[in-house]
Write a protein that binds this DNA or RNA. Structure first.
Lengths: 233, 233
DNA sequence: GGATAAAATATAAAGGATTTATAAAGTTAC
DNA sequence: GTAACTTTATAAATCCTTTATATTTTATCC
């Protein structure tokens, strides 16, 4: 397995050395830049899994650097700063994913790096492999194989039905208007295709044995849209 | 993976189509409103992660629309405008989170949308981490999922009921006249719609099992209005 | 302070408008 | 030709508003 690459942007030589040593011992590949400008150049010419950046630096501070990166990448960024006020934390977290106030322990550093890398991996994977999700009242969904079961019996969904269920079930409890569902499932700009959605919802409910009145899975929010309310087991 | 919903408020059909098309291809659900009024209605009856709004529009311009929204939500708002003067930008950024001067490239549009959505996710992670608010006497409100519980049992509120409760409960102990409630919930200025408010208050009280005489949640201030008096647990 | 009138709110019920569910007939694509 | 999808038409459900009436509170007068 390729070592994960970390870009460290820190002007203080001493601190940089400590961080670098720590992370290398953890098995990461660490590249060190001393200014924001240099960090940007390194970032765009390399392939990094995580960025550690100091807030206060000469030339270009960490915040501006992050803004630039964020226009083009969602790579995890951890901001390091001597500022520890709550308001600073909020500002820092605008574009960064995590915030580390100086002084910090090396254990905390390692933990946060690990956590962000894990999140990044999860984010990059479309679905977790062999992920079978079970819900109350007998529904099971295998997202990888795209198979649906009700009480152990497989139900065959059509393309649209599956796509609908996917949007809904992967965003549980989130309300979707019919228009939103249409653009998400059909990927088209059409007005007033809401009837199509309604009809597919009905078909889906039927196949899931989901009663309209007291639903286990797809709930109608009157005047607004639909949402998935299945609780995972 | 997370399906994100964007509300586009733009009166120009052509521009709207291009923007909508671009964002749908990026995988967002895009709902198009042609006026500020329509946009407001859509916003308050839907569940949006971002709003793109044109400054200049008939009926209600983008600025006024934003002001209304900001009374009740921190959703990211990007203002689109033909005005490119620095002072306009400052005005536009008063309540909006970002400003896009026409003409803009679609790449820039996508980048700014991405950036704002990321900020929003982060914000929600930090501030809305524990989303369930509990009050004395058994009321629990999940503002994110928009679910209400009384003693563990979910109660289904209608749109107006929920909107009313939201205004009241998110401003505890603040007195609202019926007229104020009407404009906040109905987004219209009508005279003498106070009866409508009264009736909805009654329905809400019933669903919350809140006695009129010795209320736990909604108190009548005779001759003045209503206020929410629930104490958080 | 108590009775009474006036004002405001609470309650109940009906009507209408809107939205969704359902059924069935077309249309498209393989 | 069949299955999936879309469109259309109709039925059913839900919510909002309005209206009417009852009740409660406040104000006023004696």
């Amino acid at each position: 397995m390729m070592a994960q690459q970390i870009l460290l942007v820190e002007d203080d030589r001493e601190i940089a050395r400590i961080i670098k040593d720590t992370l290398i011992k953890e098995g990461y590949a660490v590249i060190w830049a001393t200014t924001g400008i240099e960090g940007l150049e390194d970032f765009f010419s390399g392939n990094y899994d995580l960025i550690l950046v100091d807030w206060m630096m000469p030339e270009m501070d960490g915040l501006s650097m992050i803004e630039h990166i964020r226009l083009q990448s969602d790579v995890p960024i951890i901001m390091i700063s001597a500022k520890s006020k709550e308001t600073d934390k909020v500002t820092g977290l605008q574009d960064a994913d995590d915030y580390l106030a100086k002084p910090f322990s090396l254990e905390e550093l390692k933990a946060r790096v690990r956590s962000q890398l894990r999140r990044w991996q999860r984010y990059n994977k479309v679905f977790a492999a062999d992920e079978m999700v079970s819900y109350e009242h007998g529904l099971k969904i295998d997202w990888v194989k795209e198979r649906i079961y009700i009480e152990e019996d497989e139900v065959n969904l059509t393309q649209k039905e599956f796509a609908l269920l996917k949007v809904l079930a992967q965003n549980p409890f989130e309300l979707f208007t019919k228009e939103a569902l249409y653009t998400l499932v059909w990927h088209q700009v059409e007005l007033d295709q809401t009837h199509t959605v309604t009809v597919h919802i009905k078909a889906l409910r039927e196949k899931l044995h989901d009663p309209v009145k007291s639903p286990n899975y797809i709930q109608t929010i009157w005047g607004k849209g639909y949402r998935f309310i299945g609780e995972q087991v």
